[in-house]
Design a protein around this nucleic acid. Sequence first.
DNA 1: TTGCGTGCAAAGGTTTTGCATGGCA
DNA 2: TGCCATGCAAAACCTTTGCACGCAA
Lengths: 140, 140
Amino acid sequence: MVNKRPTNYHTRQGQSILDYMKSLQGSHVTVNQLVRHFEAVEADIGQTTIYRHLEKLAAEGKIRKYVLFDDKSTCYQYIDNEKNCREHFHLKCETCGALIHMDCDFLNKIERHLLREHDFQINMLKTVFYGTCKKCRAGA
Amino acid sequence: MVNKRPTNYHTRQGQSILDYMKSLQGSHVTVNQLVRHFEAVEADIGQTTIYRHLEKLAAEGKIRKYVLFDDKSTCYQYIDNEKNCREHFHLKCETCGALIHMDCDFLNKIERHLLREHDFQINMLKTVFYGTCKKCRAGA
DNA sequence: TTGCGTGCAAAGGTTTTGCATGGCA
DNA sequence: TGCCATGCAAAACCTTTGCACGCAA
């Protein structure tokens, strides 16, 4: 591998951002929330830097980037490989915003089915099922 | 129903926008494309008006609103109820942008499965499977 | 020392809002 | 005639870019 980008300095900012994303344990944040978080902790990381790190982490597959349909701003979420997030589906509750990691044999057949029967290679990291979760269905 | 919104005047602009969305037969457009289209046809509809109609149509469930993940701008697409778009899944090719309406017994079981086994009411109109379509997989 | 990383400020782009006017019912 | 719809301009946001300086290697 000669093409390997030489861009991998270890910096306080980069480390802080990755650490914080990991610490969220699956829940998502917006750029704004990150800016405010680091302000609150007095880490003072410029928003430009945050954008650049998020973009890089997303490109590396370490975090997921997506948009809630009714919302405006982009959300980012750490991908915990130990939880095999590349191999299961994600359900997003439109009411409370909860993200559910769905490990389920039935759903896991979807990927293979789409590929074999429909010649469609699904992107598990980007695909999200939207709907209403158990708790919010009960509350309604 | 007393709460019915009295806001339903029939206007040239509203009719043109709905007609055009229907005429696209499933493919999506951005606000920009709509603005340019109506300029080209010399219908001259202000972009503010376009935004407001799209928002209303989306709220009424007549059009779908979504964001292509790697893109910036929001896309809108007419929902053809005659095609039972509420009852099947949609696959979006991340490479060529094609939207595939997937009528398939296996996939259609997903809705019931999620509801019965996971107590999750999926929103078929908003959920989109992202991935790579047959054609683009062959081309790559 | 070298060159990427950082962050301010400014630019760029999209979407929303205020308000006076126009047009449907 | 009464009100909602329209559309211009401006505001509000979100994200990217330019550039000088700081800092990791």
